[in-house]
Design a protein around this nucleic acid. Structure first.
Lengths: 251, 251
DNA sequence: CGTGCCAGGTGCCGT
DNA sequence: ACGGCACTTGGCACG
């Protein structure tokens, strides 16, 4: 269903009637403002405005993947007439943020009953962790998994293991290039485990590592293991095995 | 310009002719796949597909602000016919990632000459830093600014200052709630300055701080200063003053 | 192009 | 609701 070059009144009625019923795409020339945690002015130009039934508002220009201004799911989007011109007001409750669009011209409004399907992503860090738990020799031979996502006072450890000597091994996993933050994270975890459980060391598993991260890694006496998620991708994608049977020990 | 319920051949021609000329919105029922750093399957359902002249591809469902699958600017988007059905192939060069959509039905394709206007955002962290540099008494009385965005081996320091006693003061600024990462960041900077320049302490400036961040803050003997960006917002927005005259000392 | 880092990040899953 | 964290994060600036 679509209306072309609607009058402001007609456009407002259409939007308010259908804003919860489906995805609304508005091709228009408008200006606008965003006010909230920050502030922005949207110059008058042609934009594609998308109103989703969950409250999402997107204003897209001709470039970039991110909208120029937006409001997330849960916002209240309403069309109002003010002095004959159509305003589209979007209000996000918490934090309080608003997007107000002033329509100079509306070329088309299309209503579309888009499906609410979600996408199952594979090859994520979690998938990589699951794979490594079942193939710990990739990380280092002789490791026994103690737990996955083990909480410590410094945060959650991706994989906690023990080696043949009975020493704890903290494994931090990154699916892509590990930066210094990953190293500091691992360092904190190792310190936390050493304090709470006993002697511990750390292994950073990632597809690559930045030079400064490697510098810190050596400074803190940590180990780096390179994995190629691209090569593991097939295995990660074609995983017909069930969920990890890790012990998931706490504290 | 728009075409309704086009035949695959017509749709392909339209897309390939106009994909660099303007924003193309495709209302369609399609399935698809994403392959690259990760992988995903898009079930057959109605979606809004957006093709931007800069190569951006977005596939939106009826929920969420984030597209279900996408490719960023710089991708090559092409429509091809395969056995009578329309395929939309998007290829991102580096990293190599692809989105392939198989059109079951195309309801509408609209071409729209969206403007390439950018939005100037105000109230960002940089704005807050600029304000604080000119109003250092908000951070602490008696501070002299040494530099802004000062590079150290541990990263860039938001504001480096000296107090009345000649001690270096590292100021880390967050526009919203500071978490433990911000505290660790500040700690690294203070250590780097202490090593490179001499005695130093640290101040974290943010609108608020998480409890665990506050815990670490005290452990590391750092100071927290709460600012209300909302109250400063007017000043940040109505800043008619020119760029910071900071010395921007290096090393 | 790599590194670093902010972002109105968004989204997910805990307690 | 707050917290912690991954994300195909995206986008930017700088060496």
């Amino acid at each position: 269903m679509r209306i072309l070059e609607p009058e402001p009144r007609e456009a407002a009625a259409f939007i308010n009637t259908n804003r919860r019923r489906g995805l609304i795409a508005v091709f228009c020339i408008c200006g606008g403002t965003y006010r909230g945690r920050a502030a922005a002015e949207l110059p008058v130009a042609p934009y594609l405005v998308v109103i989703k039934p969950d409250g999402t508002l997107l204003v897209h220009g001709s470039e970039k993947a991110t909208p120029l201004v937006w409001n997330p799911p849960g916002s209240s989007n309403m069309a109002v007439l003010e002095g004959g011109t159509l305003l589209l007001k979007s209000l996000r409750p918490r934090p309080s943020e608003s997007v107000v669009l002033k329509m100079e011209r509306v070329l088309e409004i299309a209503l579309f009953d888009a499906g609410s399907s979600s996408v199952r992503l594979r090859g994520t860090e979690r998938d990589l962790v699951d794979f490594l738990v079942k193939n710990m020799e990739v990380v280092e031979p002789g490791l026994d998994v103690v737990g996955v996502e083990v909480p410590t006072e410094a945060g959650h450890i991706d994989i906690l293991a023990v080696d043949g000597a009975g020493e704890y091994v903290v494994v931090e996993v990154k699916r892509d290039v590990a930066d210094h933050e990953a190293v500091f994270q691992l360092r904190r975890y190792v310190e936390a485990v050493a304090k709470a459980r006993g002697r511990a060391r750390g292994i950073l598993v990632a597809s690559d590592i930045t030079s400064s991260a490697f510098h810190y890694l050596r400074e803190y006496n940590l180990k780096f293991v390179k994995v190629k998620p691209g090569e593991l991708m097939e295995k990660l994608i074609n995983k017909n095995n069930c969920k990890s049977s890790s012990t998931d020990v706490r504290r």
